[in-house]
Design a protein around this nucleic acid. Structure first.
Length: 946
RNA sequence: GCCCUUGUGGCGGAACGGCAGACGCUACGGACUUAAAAUCCGUUGACCUUUAUCGGUCGUGUGGGUUCGAUUCCCACCAAGGGCACCA
């Protein structure tokens, strides 16, 4: 009987489920077994189900998990659902279905699809972020953040009760702005300038002031921040969800408006998030993305006095060495001093400009970066170095959220300042020259060089000049060294229904209080109507009874963003049913950190940064034992749609792709299309797709078969519904089986590489599996009896080489080459008239991580009664890897001229003698002088002649 | 603009200082078959030479360099993909 994938796969999937074959053992049960924690990125169960990209990473981790189980490891490998989120809620609004209903249906579909792939998850550990038993602990973690502050002296989070104690015993004092400092008296310090008395002891503040001071220190705090408010959707949106001032979904207008929001103080961890990246085994590119996102820059803050006023404007600069070149100053339009310094003459213009920028989103303000705008305030600042007066402007190009919201403009050495100065005819003063050659005066010189026109800095290279200037500023008391980050605190609240409620209540004054941990979870109220209210009041506001917590306390009605649940799910997998703790300590210590984490690169700076942040807070507070959650992380490459061929067309007919520049995808009425600009006419051209058969390769490009003059654009696109190139895994599994699908996905190329799907290629893996079946079972089960005894030497050597290669390849995630090796071995076995049982068993084991269903079936028919997953991974015998004779390539001047057969342990002289006796080599040596003989043991021989 | 990644046959890819193209697909030829499917065998980078073999030349995006030897290491450039983008 030929191999029937459908019945075999169903049978084993049922067996695994019923027997809990992949159950991970708790540490007490595991004894001395070493552990591996192998993690897949948390899927969002969307309505459209799995696409072929999901199983790529899942199959990779599944192979690794199965391999380590066979190697005797206790493996934790499971799955769960990141099930809160906007798509389900949008659908709920549209159809008036409860999001819980659609979410449950989606999870059922995902679970069924994932089981169909034969993935070796421990299904007893499945979690769902929308389950109150799960989000109880999401809320609990939020409370830990709420009840903690960041101690900058120890560089870690501590309970806020510790801060209170330090304030109460006057080790710490509070400045008028609410900032907290070491008591200068207890430190034995005198104030350098200013008054020590400005710092006040804790006891001198009123209880209301004390509350404000503490709330200002929490890791979870509220703040009034300008957000993208979308009245049409009734929610705030992130910058990513806003395109050209309109919502990405529905195209509703966006307003900037300040709203009270929950924020998480991730910026306190910027340094540690940055520093700890170094030790992680992650792709360098991903680490780089996180570094860029954190955006640490070192510079100085410099105080400029305002001419004729008692105020100071502090600017941040990364180039203190260019301070002598500052010819004007720019404040962000919303800077607090603008109103006070603006002169009467300038007032109307300033007001108009500020009004204009207020309505714009951050994105809009950053759109036209070339065309600078701004207005002069009429006021002047004084350069602290030389008392020179420079005009103060306001302009959109300075952002309130970065640095101090004010800059000193050095047009000679900053591109933005240069453009601005050119436009408004402001002076440009050169204070740095290139180390070599002359500067191009038509643009800003932004590189490092040597200081000029800068008094005491003259002649110093930029690095030294920066240091010298910073020292000088500190000596003079007009500035100091400063570090800034691009990273902003995490805006943590959403005006949505389908998210975790905050475990927070508010009094009439708007003061917030933590709900007692014993009262968790705070469950979502049932509400009938999911439509937006049209005001910033979240949908939870409609649950009137739920809101009223007590006579004078009402509940927080915002919900948490989708990222909350996925920040810590890997901890819950360890102890998923624990009702008393987030995770039990001994289990956490046993399993953490995650040994291998595989997922797409799209989570590089959101999920992966957020969860590192939460993990570090939990670490500081003693709830987890490692500083980092994910030791080794690998990004699977995206699987693209099948390669498409397009040529460009104008009214005049086909146009060669080589004539077109700026080729990019464009969304048209007929769906996404490629468009480009004709290099000479400038006319816009759209593409027409052609099938592969109408195209041929000519030189290094494709052309139309019918007209070789027309070059064709060949590329693969991201799979998308609108493009219609999505491949559904269900179809592939039905036709070829899960084993075949898994093999194909792994055989496409390296895991990390981006690669195009090609349905035509699947047949190769299909043939391979059928050949395996024929080799061990036979077309009519004729070969079901395997022979005893040993394999011949050649097969035996090959077998051991394959064990070595497959083992090493799995450990380094090179599945494509491991499969190639299995195919080679199978091709050799196919030539045998009788297959020894020993060979067959090893082959089945080597195949089992990749194609587990067929491997189980083979294993069973070879006479085993237990799952192949319980068997031991084969060892290879190093002695069997060594050939007695080897073939040695012989090169003359680096070119291959002959190959010689020789015993493996031949010495150099024997080899040279043999080479020089070779008839093929002789003509290349005749009449030439042998200058050098190179022998690389076991590899090759090279003669240098001349 | 800045940062990162990737360029190897008709296609996916392998080799990552030592025989370029493993393995799979496609295509072509052959065997089996009444026929088809399936299966099996062979050929499949380009060019030159040859009846064929044998043999030779070129060839890993382009141009340089290091080396006995470079797809691999270094420099510059080009192209594609991704990220960031007025971050002072």
């Amino acid at each position: 009987m030929a191999y029937n994938h459908t019945s075999t796969e169903k049978k084993w999937q049922r067996y695994w489920l019923e027997n809990k074959t992949f159950r991970a053992l708790d540490p007490a049960e595991a004894g001395k077994m070493p552990k591996k924690y192998i993690l897949d990125m948390f899927p969002y169960p969307s309505g459209s189900g799995l696409h072929v990209g999901h199983p790529e990473g899942y199959t990779a981790t599944d192979i690794v998990s199965r391999y380590y189980r066979n190697k005797g490891f206790n493996v934790l490998h499971t799955i769960g659902w990141d099930a809160f989120g906007l798509p389900a809620e949008q659908y709920a609004v549209k159809t008036n279905t409860h999001p819980r209903v659609t979410t449950a249906a989606n999870i059922t579909k995902f679970r069924q699809q994932i089981r169909m792939l034969g993935l070796s998850y421990d299904w007893d550990r499945e979690v769902d972020t929308t389950d109150p038993k799960y989000y109880k602990w999401t809320q609990w973690i939020f409370l830990q953040l709420y009840k903690s502050y960041f101690d900058p002296f120890d560089n870690k989070a501590k309970p806020i009760s510790h801060l209170v104690a330090e304030l109460e015993n006057d080790n710490l004092v509070v400045a008028p702005d609410g900032s907290i400092h070491i008591n200068p008296v207890s430190e034995g310090m005198q104030a350098i300038s200013g008054d020590v008395e400005a710092y006040r002891k804790w006891g001198s503040y009123t209880p209301i002031e004390q509350r404000g001071i503490l709330d200002g220190q929490r890791l979870a705090y509220t703040d009034e921040v300008p957000v993208n408010w979308c009245p049409g959707l009734g929610t705030v949106l992130s910058n990513e969800e806003v395109i050209d001032g309109k919502s990405e979904v529905g195209g509703f207008p966006i307003e900037r408006r300040p709203l009270r929001q929950w924020m998480l103080r991730i910026t306190a961890y910027a340094d540690r998030l940055l520093a700890d990246l170094d030790a992680l085994n992650w792709p360098e590119s991903l680490k780089e993305m996180q570094r860029n996102w954190i955006g640490r820059s070192i510079g100085a803050e410099v105080d400029f006095e305002i001419d004729g006023r008692d105020d100071v404007i502090t600017v941040f600069t990364t180039r203190p060495d260019t301070l002598f070149g500052a010819t004007y100053m720019v404040l962000a339009p919303e800077h607090e001093l603008v109103d006070q310094i603006t002169t009467n003459e300038a007032r109307a213009q300033i007001a108009a400009y500020r009004h204009g920028s207020q309505g714009k989103s951050d994105r809009e303000r950053q759109q036209d970066t070339k065309d600078k705008t701004g207005v002069f305030t009429g006021a002047y600042a004084v350069n602290p170095l030389n008392d020179q007066k420079i005009p103060i402007w306001i302009a959109d190009y300075v952002l309130m959220g970065y640095g101090t919201g004010a800059i000193m403009a050095v047009p000679a050495h900053d591109e933005r300042d240069f453009e601005f100065a050119k436009k408004f005819d402001l002076p440009i003063k050169h204070v740095v020259r290139p180390a070599k050659g002359a500067a191009d005066q038509s643009k800003a010189f932004t590189d490092i060089g040597v200081s000029i026109n800068s008094d005491f800095l003259d002649g110093l290279p930029t690095a030294e000049a920066k240091e010298r200037m910073t020292e000088y500023l500190e000596e003079e008391g007009v500035g100091h060294k400063s570090i800034n980050y691009k990273l902003r605190d995490w805006l943590f609240s959403r005006q949505r229904y389908w998210g975790e409620p905050f475990p927070i209540v508010l009094d009439m004054m708007g003061n917030h209080f933590a709900i007692d941990e014993a009262e968790l979870p705070v469950t979502l109220p049932e509400i009938e109507d999911f439509k937006p209210t049209g005001t910033p009041e979240p949908p939870l506001g409609k649950a009137k009874d739920w809101i009223q917590y007590s006579d004078d306390l009402r509940r927080e009605t915002n919900t948490m963003p989708q990222w909350a649940g996925s920040c810590w799910y890997y901890l819950r997998y360890i102890d998923p049913n624990n009702g008393a703790e987030m995770v039990e300590e001994s289990k956490e210590r046993y399993w953490m950190p995650v040994d291998l984490y595989v997922g797409g690169v799209e989570h590089a700076v959101l999920h992966l940064l957020y969860s590192r942040f939460w993990h570090k807070v939990l670490f500081d507070l003693g709830h987890v034992s490692t500083a980092e959650p994910f030791q080794r992380l690998v990004n699977q490459g995206m699987i693209l749609g099948e390669t498409e061929f397009h040529f460009f067309e104008s009214s005049a007919g086909a146009v060669s792709a080589s004539e077109i520049s700026n080729i990019a995808e464009e969304v048209t009425d007929e769906g996404p299309k490629l468009a480009g600009i004709h290099k000479t006419t400038g006319e816009k051209h759209y593409t027409t797709r052609v099938i592969e058969q109408l195209v041929e390769k000519k030189g290094d490009k494709y052309v139309l078969r019918a007209n070789n003059e027309v070059a064709v654009d060949a590329r693969s696109f991201k799979m998308s519904k609108s493009r219609g190139n999505v491949v559904n895994p269900d179809d592939i599994v039905e036709e070829y089986g899960a084993d075949c699908f898994r093999l194909y996905e792994m055989y496409m190329g390296p895991l990390e590489a981006q690669k195009p799907w090609n349905t035509r290629d699947i047949i190769g893996m299909w043939r391979f599996l059928n050949s395996v079946w024929r080799n061990f079972i036979g077309e009519d089960e004729a070969r079901v009896t395997l022979t005893g005894g040993h394999a011949n030497d050649e097969i035996d050597r090959m077998l051991h080489r394959t064990i070595k290669k497959v083992s090493e390849d799995i450990e380094s995630l090179r599945f494509n080459t491991a499969i190639a090796e299995l195919i080679k071995l199978n091709n050799e076995i196919a030539k045998l008239t009788a297959v020894p049982q020993a060979v067959a068993e090893v082959f089945a084991l080597l195949l089992s991580p990749f194609a587990p269903h067929i491997a189980e079936e083979l294993w069973l028919r070879m006479g085993h009664t237990e799952s192949i997953q319980k068997a031991h991974w084969p060892h290879y015998d190093a002695a069997k890897l060594i050939d007695t004779t080897i073939e040695l390539p012989v090169q003359i001047n680096g070119r291959l001229r002959d190959k010689i057969q020789i015993i493996a342990d031949a010495d150099e002289q024997m080899i040279f003698d043999l080479v020089e006796a070779s008839a093929k080599v002789k003509p290349w040596l005749d009449g030439k002088e042998i200058r050098k003989r190179v022998y690389v043991p076991g590899k090759m021989v090279n003669y240098v002649v001349g």
